[in-house]
Simulated assay, not measured.
Amino acid sequence: MNSVELFTGAGGLALGTHIAGFRHRGLVEWDDDACETLRRNVKARALPDIHDWKVHQADVRMLKFDIFGNKGGVDLVAGGAPCQPFSLGGKHQAQEDARNMIPDFVRAVRELQPRAFIMENVKGLMRESFRNYFEYIRLQLINPDLVIKKDETWREHHYRLEKLETKGNKSLKYNVVVELLNAADYGIPQTRQRVFFVGFREDTELAWHFPKPTHSRAALMHAQWVTSTYWEKHRMPRPKEVPAYAVRWTKGKAEPLPPGIAWKTIRDAFDGLPDPRDERKAASIPNHRFIPGARSYYGHTGSPYDLPAKTLKAGVHGVPGGENMLALPDGSVRYFTVREAARLQTFPDTWHFEGSWGETMRQLGNAVPVELAAVVARSVLEELRGQGSH
């Protein structure tokens, strides 16, 4: 099945949909370094069957989507519109922010009329202060044909969409479901929460739900502090000092085996990677250069080795990026290398990143975890296959 990827960035969502079984007609991205990352990996064939990926370096607002085919000829449109307007680290301007590209995702759905779409964004989009705008986004995706008029405010457009929704739309319409997913619950070594909007064109008459979580924090606690199988797997003794969050699991009471597979931790993700402070060993690993200067301070204490990482941020210093650090067992901290951050985002080790350390960390901080994208996309593809493919 074919797809079009918008706001591709370093390729997290694009890789996930590719791994799931979609084949891209085109990837759209405007950032120079992100485009270089994509082009280098396509040229190097970093994954099988990506040699024909065509990267369109363009401002999506200026793009005519008919270059990807006729209406209805695309199976999937996917993309993560820039999240700065809704990010906790941003200015929280939402619809007033010039970087808000969600209207152009809606335009792509309107012009291509795919059988399905996947759009993701940051958890901040669901904040109470954005509640009305969140509903406005959902109504636009349900009714992409009802276009905002010249000089019409988004609130006025919202009112018209509400009327259409209650009256019934007889033109292009999508059945849309929205869910906040925690990446750790699906086997990603990071507690990254992202909002996913998934829609199916109404005439497909398909019934779909989000994949159920497969991993759990409780299962990790059980493996670490009840059975100790976690420590045995890593060939190390169980720590004598028990962290405060795990004390209840060491009370001596028989804890029943929790459902699901244990959350993956940073230690799990970094298995096989040499310590970047050992320059001789780390030199053979692409994007695995040690960056000095990390420090811990209030609100920025790093991520413990034996839990999933905190959410990677699209920055390197201060409020946006201070948490892109590993908290070592001796109490010290250090920055994640690019390769380590890529592991936390479940990019394959064959995927190389272009740009300075700060730029590559920005690419990674903005990315969708590859394996989370694959879980959602694989479920969508399986549903679409019930109708056959183009």
Rank of each mutant, 00 (worst) to 15 (best):
T214F: 01
E255L: 11
V242T: 15
E202Q: 14
H234Y: 07
R201S: 08
P211I: 12
F200S: 08
A218T: 00
A246Y: 04
T204A: 11
W208C: 11
K251V: 08
M236D: 00
W208K: 02
H209E: 15
G252W: 05
Y230G: 03
W208R: 02
D203H: 04
K212R: 15
T204L: 08
Y245P: 00
W249S: 04
W231L: 02
E241Q: 14
A254H: 02
G199D: 12
R238Q: 13
K212A: 15
F196V: 10
T204N: 08
G187R: 09
P213Q: 06
P213L: 06
R238W: 01
T250L: 03
S216I: 03
H215M: 03
I188D: 01
P256A: 10
R248S: 14
E241R: 15
P237N: 05
T250G: 01
V247Q: 12
A254L: 09
R217M: 13
T214Y: 01
K251T: 13
S228Y: 08
W225S: 02
W208T: 10
A244G: 01
T204Y: 05
K251G: 07
M236V: 13
P211E: 08
K240S: 12
L206P: 05
T229K: 07
R217Q: 13
A223Q: 10
Q224P: 06
Q224V: 02
H234S: 04
Q224A: 04
A244C: 00
A244D: 14
P243I: 13
H209R: 12
A223W: 00
V198H: 08
R192I: 12
F196C: 07
V195F: 10
Y245Q: 09
P189L: 14
G199A: 06
K233P: 01
G187K: 09
R235A: 15
P239T: 05
K240G: 11
M221E: 06
Y230H: 05
Y245L: 12
T229N: 15
E202R: 13
A244N: 06
P237S: 08
K251A: 09
K212V: 10
P256Q: 06
W231S: 03
Q190V: 11
E255Y: 11
W225Q: 01
S228A: 13
W231M: 02
V198A: 05
M221S: 04
G199K: 05
R201N: 09
F197Q: 03
W249L: 05
E232S: 09
